[in-house]
Amino acid sequence: MIAPRVSASTSRLPLAARVGAVAWPSFFAAGVATMVFFAVVDPDRLATITWPTLNVSRGVGYTLGFFMFWVCTLASSLFTSLLLKPRGDVPVDDENA
C-alpha cells in the first residue's frame, strides 16, 4: 500500500516565510533579552569592567548588546531550522505512522 507523504518539507515555504521564520523570532527574543538585561545592567558600568580603554557610550553599549543577543538567537534559530529539515534516510512521521 502506498502512503502518500502529505507533510510538506519546509523548503516548500516561500523564501520570505523561511527567512522570516528564522529572523523574526530571533529578533523578538533578542529585543526582550536586551530589555531585561539592560534594565539591570548599566552599559557604562559594564564597559568599565570589560574594556575600560575603549570609549563605549551607553548608546553604543545598547546597540552592541542588542546585536550580540541577536547573533546568538539568530544562530540558535538557524540551527533549529537546520535540524528540522527532513533527512533522506529518516522516514518522515505523518499522521498515519
Binding site: 520570505a16 516565510a17 522570516g20 521564520a21 523574526w24
Partner: peptide, 28 residues
Amino acid sequence: WEMFWIAFYGFATYGNAGFLREQVCKYM
C-alpha cells in the same frame, strides 16, 4: 548610531509594510 537606527527601523518598516505585507501575518 542614530543614523544607523533610523535606517534600520526605516528599512524594517519598508520591508514589512511595503514588501512582505500579508506574508508576515501568514508565515511569521
